[in-house]
Amino acid sequence: MEGGISLKIIISNAKGDPIYEQIYKQMKDMIIAGKLKEGDMLPSIRGLAKDLRISVITTKRAYDELEKDGFINSVAGKGSFVAEKNLELIREENLKKMESYMEKIWELAKVCGMSADEVMEMFQIMGKDVEG
């Protein structure tokens, strides 16, 4: 049983990330962004491995990680599907992204010689622009 939607996953040998992590991250990002919707059937592990010209074991590992983290559900004999959106999980992912961006901001602030007060003032000014 093939089935499932077509995924545009790009595997890069230039990246240092393992292939299963690249698949995991791209699929997770598609789910969080709503490009993959709740209940969508994913390609079979074998089908995706064939499309990407990689090992079935590598694809299975990515699917296992997605399931472990609550992004997909696998049903024996039927396939893998996008799990119901867990808003708390999505919020947590977005908080992690924000923290990563904030770390970069603090690194740049140090390079620019900015104080914490100056950075906070910049955030406040930008926040007013965003709020309208």
Rank of each mutant, 00 (worst) to 15 (best):
G4W: 04
K35A: 10
L108R: 11
V75D: 14
D29S: 11
S100T: 14
K104W: 04
I125F: 07
G70S: 03
C112P: 00
S55W: 03
S44H: 05
A83I: 15
K35T: 14
G132E: 11
K60P: 01
E103M: 14
K110Q: 08
L7M: 08
D117K: 14
A62G: 03
M114P: 01
G16N: 11
I5H: 12
T58Y: 02
K8D: 15
K25D: 15
P43C: 03
I125H: 02
M30R: 09
M120Q: 12
E131A: 12
V119N: 04
G4P: 03
S44T: 15
T59I: 14
L66I: 02
E21D: 15
I125L: 08
D29E: 15
V82E: 06
V56R: 09
D40F: 09
M1C: 11
V56H: 06
S44K: 07
D64W: 02
A14I: 15
A49G: 07
W106V: 04
F81M: 14
V119Y: 06
E38K: 15
G127N: 14
K128N: 13
A83Q: 00
I54F: 04
Y24N: 07
S80R: 06
A14P: 00
P43Q: 10
I54M: 05
A49D: 04
G127V: 03
V111C: 01
K110C: 02
K110G: 00
A83W: 02
G79Q: 09
K25N: 13
K50Q: 03
S80H: 10
G70E: 07
L36F: 12
G4L: 06
K60I: 00
G77K: 08
K110S: 05
Y24A: 05
R46M: 01
S55H: 10
G34D: 05
E131R: 09
V75L: 11
I105V: 15
K68R: 10
L66M: 01
L95H: 08
G3F: 12
G39Q: 09
K25A: 11
G39H: 13
M30H: 05
L52W: 01
G3T: 15
L7N: 06
K37C: 12
E107W: 05
A116T: 13
K68I: 00
P18Q: 12
L87E: 15
S55K: 13
F123W: 08
G47D: 04
A62D: 03
K25Q: 14
R91W: 11
S55A: 07
A49H: 08
E121F: 10
R46D: 07
E67M: 04
E93W: 13
S115E: 10
G79E: 08
I19A: 06
N86G: 08
S44I: 02
C112Y: 05
I10G: 03
V82T: 01
Q124T: 10
P18A: 14
M120D: 04
L66N: 02
I90G: 06
I57H: 06
D117I: 15
L66P: 03
N86C: 04
I9A: 12
S115I: 07
R91V: 07
